[in-house]
Design a protein around this nucleic acid. Sequence first.
DNA 1: GTAGATGCAAAGTATTTGCGACAAG
DNA 2: CTTGTCGCAAATACTTTGCATCTAC
Lengths: 136, 136
Amino acid sequence: MSETIEQKCLSKGVKLTDQRRIIAQVMSQSSDHPDVDELYIRVSKIDPKISIATVYRTVKLFEESGILTKHEFKGGKARYEELNEGHHDHLIDVKSGEIIEFVDEEIEELQKKVAEKYGYTLVDHKLELYGVKKKS
Amino acid sequence: MSETIEQKCLSKGVKLTDQRRIIAQVMSQSSDHPDVDELYIRVSKIDPKISIATVYRTVKLFEESGILTKHEFKGGKARYEELNEGHHDHLIDVKSGEIIEFVDEEIEELQKKVAEKYGYTLVDHKLELYGVKKKS
DNA sequence: GTAGATGCAAAGTATTTGCGACAAG
DNA sequence: CTTGTCGCAAATACTTTGCATCTAC
């Protein structure tokens, strides 16, 4: 287990409020990739007085602080995920919406090479695979 | 040169109106990846009476008909591009916003393999590289 | 004590839709 | 003719913001 979100807030100078603590806790416990509405529903169960504006403000702040990462998958709302040391990409089941995380070093390397080829240094990338489950 | 957008409309049974013809023409002549606002500005120069609702309806229709393809790059509005036989991905200059199209067969292959590995058939994918230009 | 965070409601964006008038096939 | 399209404005969906109040440090 790496640093908790609370520890990250401290080390990055992000003030810790009750609301932020709750949002951090919910995100840590979410292994899916909730959108803001879903996150709001989950935090509301812990503290019903939290407003959706605070949830929006907090995910944005956490994203800027490198605590969460934002995904904009096809045709939907922005979804968030805790950012850990291990980078990964996503394989999305187009039928069920299920998301599988994967890492492929070979692809990562090739991406860098492609950027180099055009005279760029890769600073970020987005790879999403959309698939249908095979009959087995 | 492959089929024109107008030809594609005919073969796909999409009714051709003046507005659609103009939008098709503008998209054909656009080598960048305009968003709806930008597209609206361009078509308005040809026919100022076209409404933005029609532009939205048309790009959606063209997308569903496989004539245009939609991109949702980071933190921006949806942008459209004419869909040709040649598939490609995008390398985006994070400073200037410039977009470079590229193809890398090796990456394409690896993507299929990754999907297979998890028991999926790849139906679509999205690969965007974000980079900064190297000093030369 | 003070700078920054919160809740609320109002304001912004981007996009979609209902409807009566109109045009393509 | 008849079905589908257009323009308009209103509606929707998601996200941001102004402001008065409150809270972490």
